[in-house]
Simulated scan of single mutants.
Amino acid sequence: MASGSSAVIVKECVLTRIKVLIVDDSAVVRQVLSTTLAQDAAIEVIDVAADPLFAMQKMAKQWPDVIVLDIEMPRMDGITFLRKIMTERPTPVVICSTLTEKGAETTMQALSAGAVGIVAKPKVGLKQYLQDASDDLASAVKAAARANPKRLKPVHSPIVSAPKLTADAVLAPGPAMMQTTDFVVAIGTSTGGTQALEVVLTALPRTCPGIVVVQHMPEKFTEAFAKRLNGLCQMDVAEARHGDRVLPGRVLIAPGGRHMLLKRSGAQYHVEIVDGPPVSRHRPSVDVLFRSVAKFAGKNALGIIMTGMGDDGARGLKEMHDAQARTLAQDEDSCVVYGMPKEAVKLGAVDRVLPLNDIPGAIMTSR
């Protein structure tokens, strides 16, 4: 009897955990990341490595589900290692990058090369910062673990040589302004979204309607992301500033760590950048943007929800749909993580589900 009971207990305790390899040349970072991740029952740190060459030796013995990777390391840099992995055996990678301008720019290269997430680390106060950000770190690893390996491929976007001619905690009550016929496109995305946005935005002409974007990304990195896209796209792409106009041929990306809302003054759209609590666990939040678009643009808007983990944006897209806006969702096959689009479809918020490569054409024919 006792033997049978023990067998049942052992069986019930069996848990498939996410196997994580940490690659960072800092012993402090390796120790803090390992300790922090080990506190989550769903995660197992199977090994650490001081550089990619050591990492490859360890991976030959046991392949991880997720790699947490530094970029600037001796012997082989993180970008070279990342590209090697994506060529030989695509594996979800979360970049652990410094909060500096150079670090942000390099991180954009890593995301373009196939990484699916970012964990920011400052140059000072590192240990306390990473401990305080333990929930974000664990969430990034869990989101990466759900990534579709078939979608972990580098984006090869053409270089454009042509000249550049619940959100109630943030949203204020009140009616929308007077009628307008100006059209606006709102896009929300998370895990895998940097690559998806690159695919969509580089395919759009300068005649495209104004676009507002929320991409879940830490503070400091959105500016580098916008600069990268601005060098690739025909449209002007910038990190949004408070009061920026939403105009044809312009893409505004919400700054990391702050919410972005669409507003209207007369017939002209602009954005407001505001502080506020995380909504749907995110700041910026897609729900905040989409709900403001529903209120101030209504039927003169297109809402698009793309790859990402969780449900941020689903309820906001439903409000856009109910306000007679057109709504799209990226399909499961082309998503890195089919979480946010799936939740929006379940709510009845989506008019059409499309592959990623069909979204630019849908944007241009939506008005």
Rank of each mutant, 00 (worst) to 15 (best):
G313W: 04
K164T: 11
C96D: 00
V185Q: 02
P205A: 12
T87P: 00
A113G: 09
V286S: 03
K102N: 10
D77S: 01
A344K: 02
A301P: 04
K164M: 12
I359H: 06
M56T: 07
L137E: 00
G210A: 07
H156Q: 09
V155K: 13
G78M: 11
V23G: 09
A203E: 10
N300I: 14
V14N: 05
A297Y: 00
L356I: 04
S5A: 14
L197T: 01
D236A: 14
M178F: 03
V68W: 03
M108V: 11
T87N: 11
G243M: 09
V212Q: 05
H321C: 02
Q268Y: 04
V336R: 03
K142A: 00
R245N: 02
D135P: 01
V184W: 05
F290T: 07
G210Q: 04
E319R: 12
V288D: 11
V45M: 07
V45F: 06
V251Y: 07
P205G: 07
D331G: 08
M1V: 09
C335A: 05
R258A: 03
A169S: 14
T16G: 08
M235C: 10
R367G: 10
P74S: 15
V124F: 13
G308S: 10
G192V: 04
D311L: 07
G276H: 06
A294V: 14
G103D: 00
T222E: 12
G348P: 10
L252P: 03
V184L: 11
D287P: 03
P248H: 09
I46C: 00
T100W: 02
L317W: 06
M309F: 04
A176L: 08
M340Y: 06
S97W: 04
H156K: 15
E88S: 14
N357P: 00
Q179E: 14
L247H: 02
T80R: 14
P92H: 05
I46T: 00
P173D: 09
D312W: 03
P158N: 14
K263Q: 13
V10T: 13
A196I: 01
V68E: 04
Q39N: 14
L82K: 01
P64Y: 06
Q195K: 14
M1A: 09
Y338T: 03
G298M: 10
P341E: 11
I187Q: 03
L99C: 13
P163M: 06
Y129T: 05
V185W: 06
T222M: 05
N300T: 12
G257N: 12
K142Y: 05
S139P: 02
M306Q: 06
P163K: 09
R326I: 12
C335H: 07
C208E: 00
M56D: 06
A226E: 08
